[in-house]
């Protein structure tokens, strides 16, 4: 699938975020290559969402750098580029899937408009094209064509999450950030979303950073795993290696605490 490249798509260098004396995340470094999915796991308060916000240009780190391989200029510090360049990046090359679809969607306008809006934000103007592309993406996330004109407020949680996915993928991003994408969904709905996500990641060659506290989700979705505790990364490795042969005492505790159905 993805040709092997030595150039990372995203690179974090010593990323730290302090809130006064409180540590959000501390000295996180890694590289993400094209087509790779990185899972970030840890309990509540471990700093995983703070890190995700720093990586996705939403929260400037206190120290360290986040570099992204932009189409025009190669590896560029996302906090040093112009506001306009960063915004364009966030609405075209990047996607951001939030845990609560209400934070990522406009609940009062139609599902089709939610998806089409992102295309218009990158310059699409032809109404017919926008609508057909939006409808096409909604069908790829398994939203029936007869629901395209209904607002997400009338959808179930699982459907809303799929609309959010379509809204993010319509601009064909290269990198998608996801914060607990299956959190708050019923188990059967989670399975459907996971299956869909896996297929899309594979078919589109997407890279993704996925924050979750659900280790089963990472087993199915992530190639690599980073385990966080108290704001720091305590272990990193291939997903199956971290889950089957965890090295750090905290990772061992985390893995041994999973209920195996």
């Amino acid at each position: 699938m993805t040709a092997e490249t030595n150039r990372p798509l995203l690179r974090a260098e010593g990323v730290s975020k302090f809130y006064g004396r409180h540590v959000g995340c501390r000295d996180v470094s890694f590289e993400l290559h094209p087509g790779e999915v990185l899972g970030i796991v840890g309990e509540s308060g471990s700093g995983k969402t703070t890190l995700l916000n720093c990586l996705s240009a939403q929260l400037e780190p206190t120290a360290g750098h986040v570099l992204y391989d932009t189409r025009a200029d190669g590896l560029t510090d996302v906090y040093r580029m112009s506001e306009a360049a960063r915004r364009l990046l966030m609405r075209s090359d990047w996607g951001l899937v939030r845990q609560n679809p209400r934070d990522g969607l406009r609940m009062g306008v139609s599902a089709g408009a939610n998806v089409g809006e992102r295309l218009m934000a990158v310059g699409a103007r032809h109404y017919g094209n926008i609508r057909s592309e939006a409808t096409d993406w909604l069908s790829r996330v398994e939203i029936d064509a007869d629901r395209v004109d209904d607002p997400p407020a009338t959808f179930s949680g699982g459907m809303q999450q799929r609309v959010q996915l379509a809204r993010n993928l319509v601009t064909r991003p290269r990198l998608v950030f996801m914060d607990e994408p299956t959190g708050g969904l019923d188990v059967s709905v989670q399975a459907r979303l996971l299956d869909l996500l896996r297929g899309l990641v594979n078919d589109l060659g997407l890279s993704a950073v996925v924050v979750t506290h659900d280790l089963a989700v990472t087993r199915l979705l992530a190639h690599r795993l980073m385990v966080m505790k108290g704001g720091a990364v305590v272990e990193t490795g291939l997903t199956d290696q971290v889950l089957d042969d965890p090295q750090h005492p905290y990772s061992q505790l985390l893995v041994s605490s999973i209920l195996q159905p």
Binding site: M1, E4, E36, A191, D195, R219, H223, R224, G237, L238
Partner: peptide
Amino acid sequence: PPHRVLDVRRRTLGWVSQFLRVVPRV
């Protein structure tokens, strides 16, 4: 590095075990 190990697994190194772990719906 991890992406290299994954490339070896994808193309060169096959793993055959007794146990199946798949996404439920596929």
